[in-house]
Write a protein that binds this DNA or RNA. Sequence first.
DNA 1: ATCCTACAGTAACATTTATCACAGAAGGTT
DNA 2: AACCTTCTGTGATAAATGTTACTGTAGGAT
Lengths: 208, 208
Amino acid sequence: MQHSLKNIFPNFSNELIETIEKNGTLQDFKTGTILMRTGQYIKNTALITKGKIKIYRQGEDGGEFLLYYLQPGQACAISMICTAKSEKSQIMAKVVEDVSVMMIPLQSMDKWMMEHRSWYEFVIETYRSRFEEVLEVVDNIAFRSMDERLEFYLKRHSDACGCSEVNLSHQEIASELNTSREVVSRLLKKMEQRGLVKLNRNQIELLK
Amino acid sequence: MQHSLKNIFPNFSNELIETIEKNGTLQDFKTGTILMRTGQYIKNTALITKGKIKIYRQGEDGGEFLLYYLQPGQACAISMICTAKSEKSQIMAKVVEDVSVMMIPLQSMDKWMMEHRSWYEFVIETYRSRFEEVLEVVDNIAFRSMDERLEFYLKRHSDACGCSEVNLSHQEIASELNTSREVVSRLLKKMEQRGLVKLNRNQIELLK
DNA sequence: ATCCTACAGTAACATTTATCACAGAAGGTT
DNA sequence: AACCTTCTGTGATAAATGTTACTGTAGGAT
């Protein structure tokens, strides 16, 4: 089977795969679904097996600041952390490409840490890589100006979707960078003049 | 004994305390010591038993952006995460008040996760709280302007030192917020006019 | 006292980003 | 075609932040 857990999580031991298949619930969600809201209590850890999710930090004013993407083979570190203490979510998760996720109940998550070395290693590695990714976000907003941040945003988008077209409106991009549409339009125009992108309606082609 | 591990880490089991005392090395460092540099390999996890440490993210230009404080009873999440994979440090740690730290070698860190429930819980809680703290940093730089960030900075400083005087120059504050001294001076003057602080040489008194 | 250095204040100006206002273009609906 | 909505482009202006330049002051060293 093409989408077997073993293919998506190659480091999991066979026993762990079996355990997951026995205890987890595979669920599908359509693009646009909000999987988790700020302030919501978390009852499961989600392993992504298909599709894409974007993780946001929300401001009090309602801004939605993009933190990172989650893709097949990954898991939500925050859900793990919060699950472990049954705490409130500090973030918002939105499906941006139809996903399948394996939902792991709170108790299993904890139990497996002791029983399955490969689960333990996966959890630690998840913490590490998400932490690093958030630190990279800090780098961007602390040390870089909007034009660099926009370039980084576009690059990350194309990395995530594996293509060179960004099918988003300027307004959507602006929200995820917490700036205004006009600024994004202007900076994109400059990038077009520098030959970095080609602008179409609802689409930005990355040229380099 | 006043500074016993048990007092500082009340949630650790007695067996764990014993194990730590047997395997760890207590080390002292003076204010100003750089405990860890960006890019350095990490060989130990550090438990703080006395003093204060500031954790910074460094920009390519050499900026030192303050992420958070570490205090007695806490541990460096990054060192844990990196230790687990023996990876490079993404951050810089500077002693700001003479510290004693219990150094835990890589192997023990991992081993105890399986053997001591209270260690496991401590590590998970450390991940969670550091992650949350970094997310709060993201909030600040993503959603707030410099005056609010400065107020937050001062408040955090006084929380950390437990006093209402900030004995730092405007230049030092500016570096940690990645802005310029002039901006900090201006904003502090405005805060003084609003009656929030009293400005002296090398000292800012918080009035509210 | 004199000198020196780090620190603080502030004006003037540059740059970046945000906001307001409006116009036109693309694409869907009737 | 006529209409509507969303998206995009752009000028004008405002506000925030960064930079340059200069001044004065406090406190330590000689």
